[in-house]
Amino acid sequence: MTSFPLPLRLLILALSFEIQAVLAVTTITNVTVDDQDPAILYSPEDWNTTEAYNSLDYGGYHHLSGQSSAFAIFNFTGVAIYFLSPLWPYAVGARLVLDGQIPPVFVDLQDHSQPVNSTGGAETVSSAVVWGFENLTLGNHSLQVEFAQGQSQYVVVDAFM
């Protein structure tokens, strides 16, 4: 068996640790943040939260507002962001603004497979990813969820990933 000289063995060992460090840094993990998490700022502060547990919501609950001034801000560090929400049998939606980019994106959260329920009601489709943005530069970002004036009756926050 051939033995490498000590300087070469040390170099190989150092490169091995360097490669392991790079691999450890590039590991990407999805983290889901529920609507109840204090990392989400709601304004005005009087958003409604569901009182009864519903298995169609991520974590059992969601935040809802019918106020035209309503918005929520979620600041995060990462390379992607996903917006999770159930669907409803009436006009629910959200305008999403990522890192202040204009124009915002409208996300329709109405379950169009159901007859429209003009009096509201509970979710009809389980919470899932309804919008996402990938390939962000690794760093700090902000997603603002706003009431979609003229496009929906309510804005909802259920979870972010």
Rank of each mutant, 00 (worst) to 15 (best):
residue 40 I to D: 09
residue 59 G to H: 10
residue 45 E to G: 15
residue 48 N to D: 12
residue 77 T to L: 01
residue 118 S to N: 09
residue 61 Y to E: 07
residue 102 I to K: 10
residue 43 S to G: 03
residue 42 Y to I: 04
residue 78 G to T: 10
residue 98 L to R: 05
residue 102 I to H: 08
residue 119 T to Y: 04
residue 63 H to C: 02
residue 92 V to T: 11
residue 62 H to D: 04
residue 70 A to D: 02
residue 58 Y to Q: 10
residue 73 I to S: 11
residue 107 V to R: 08
residue 42 Y to P: 03
residue 83 F to P: 01
residue 107 V to D: 11
residue 108 D to Y: 11
residue 98 L to A: 08
residue 63 H to Y: 10
residue 69 S to V: 06
residue 49 T to I: 07
residue 83 F to A: 02
residue 95 R to H: 12
residue 51 E to W: 06
residue 93 G to R: 13
residue 61 Y to M: 02
residue 78 G to E: 07
residue 91 A to E: 13
residue 99 D to N: 15
residue 82 Y to S: 14
residue 52 A to Q: 15
residue 100 G to W: 05
residue 76 F to P: 06
residue 95 R to A: 10
residue 54 N to W: 08
residue 96 L to W: 09
residue 106 F to R: 03
residue 90 Y to I: 00
residue 49 T to D: 02
residue 85 S to R: 03
residue 51 E to S: 11
residue 82 Y to N: 11
residue 54 N to M: 02
residue 66 G to H: 09
residue 99 D to M: 06
residue 115 P to I: 04
residue 73 I to H: 02
residue 53 Y to I: 01
residue 93 G to L: 07
residue 70 A to T: 07
residue 114 Q to I: 00
residue 65 S to M: 07
residue 79 V to Q: 14
residue 46 D to V: 01
residue 76 F to V: 01
residue 57 D to L: 06
residue 73 I to W: 00
residue 69 S to C: 00
residue 44 P to W: 10
residue 77 T to R: 12
residue 84 L to K: 15
residue 58 Y to L: 04
residue 98 L to W: 08
residue 99 D to W: 07
residue 65 S to Q: 11
residue 78 G to V: 08
residue 68 S to E: 15
residue 101 Q to K: 10
residue 79 V to S: 14
residue 106 F to M: 01
residue 61 Y to A: 03
residue 105 V to Q: 13
residue 109 L to W: 13
residue 69 S to A: 14
residue 91 A to S: 13
residue 85 S to Y: 07
residue 71 F to L: 13
residue 73 I to N: 12
residue 111 D to T: 03
residue 113 S to M: 04
residue 118 S to V: 07
residue 47 W to T: 08
residue 103 P to N: 04
residue 53 Y to T: 01
residue 102 I to V: 12
